[in-house]
Design a protein around this nucleic acid. Structure first.
Lengths: 183, 183
DNA sequence: GCCGCCTGTAGACGGCGTCTACGTCGCAGT
DNA sequence: ACTGCGACGTAGACGCCGTCTACAGGCGGC
């Protein structure tokens, strides 16, 4: 059964997020969606930021899940698939992706979020490390290389979200980025 | 003299932005800062988005200005300097940079903003074109290459703003990115 | 001299996050 | 069996916010 009020509120918030975007996810609308009074959410979360942090945590978990079930066996092939998975996540869940990186809406210090968060980064870092052991850019510092690659993907997603890149062109641009790093 | 009320409001908003961050830039606070009543700004701007768009326009203009006075004469040298300038702008004006890419706060369709905006992109595109004519990645589509490079820089700035990269590490990561693209 | 526009004021409305006081169960301890 | 308490929810208030409307002064052009 799913009578845990925390989970119900997170579910309502997530539905609101994917349906109407990040601006629609207010405490009062979440409460209405869940069929409770406007003050009820504060019985289970210290404030709006804490509830949204819980929602974002599920987003990071899903992102990490996508980064684990990767096709391919060669390290560089797997790293490439992970990069495509990152952008695929952003394209499939634009509102969630936006929320996950809105530091004014969520509390980055929230422990559960922070751990899920760094876990996703560490996973990418491991893929980079495996590719390096395979001979790809072995001379570059692993953490810096991971951050650089991550930023390149992240910027692509962010610019698409912003409106600077239309949907079809973002795929072609991703190919250029991947070719630059891994070609 | 600077008695143009539009300019006064933009100046107050900019001061508020750099001093207290993007969340503090509300219409009512801008009005207070400018010493007028809370409804006065709506005499000169159709709404909050239009005022913030005007502020963001000055940001894009400053960004473009930085991209013009570049050291170096060799095309690749100039392109490299432009990339450093982009990140330098973000590091120097984090709140302005954040505002410029907050599509929920500004109106991307605002004509003056859109033109200043694409002008900055076109300038970077020209630098890329010059470098290509100099033999750098001549086989890649110029627009896609420009977008890819821009995204790599933008993501770096965005992740730093988000908190994922500390200030010193962002410089080192930028070096890795530039080495990847231009090395 | 009068009209109209520019600029600004003051108040209202609904929505927001948050706080507080108040209910209402169900269940554990004596 | 009664009591007390903790989990859960309600209702109202407060001070923000953006926006709308009604109103007032000031000043140049007919």
């Amino acid at each position: 059964m799913d009578t845990d009020p925390r989970q119900r509120l997170i579910a309502s918030a997530t539905a609101l997020l994917t349906d109407e975007g990040v601006e629609a996810v207010t405490l009062r609308r979440i409460a209405r969606e869940a069929g409770v009074s406007h003050g009820a959410p504060l019985r289970h979360f210290a404030g709006r930021a804490e509830l949204l942090s819980a929602v974002a945590t599920t987003g990071f978990a899903e992102l990490r899940r996508r980064g684990e079930n990767l096709p391919g066996s060669a390290p560089r092939e797997r790293l490439l698939a992970a990069c495509r998975a990152y952008l695929g996540f952003a394209l499939d869940n634009p509102a969630m992706f936006e929320l996950m990186f809105r530091h004014d809406l969520i509390d980055a210090a929230e422990p559960e979020l922070a751990s899920t968060n760094t876990a996703a980064f560490d996973h990418l870092s491991e893929l980079v490390g495996a590719a390096q052991r395979d001979g790809w850019r072995a001379g570059t510092d692993r953490r810096l290389l991971t951050a650089s690659l991550w930023a390149a993907l992240h910027g692509l997603a962010e610019l698409w979200l912003w409106g600077g890149l239309d949907g079809t062109r973002v795929r072609a641009t991703l190919d250029v980025t991947l070719e630059t790093y891994l070609g």
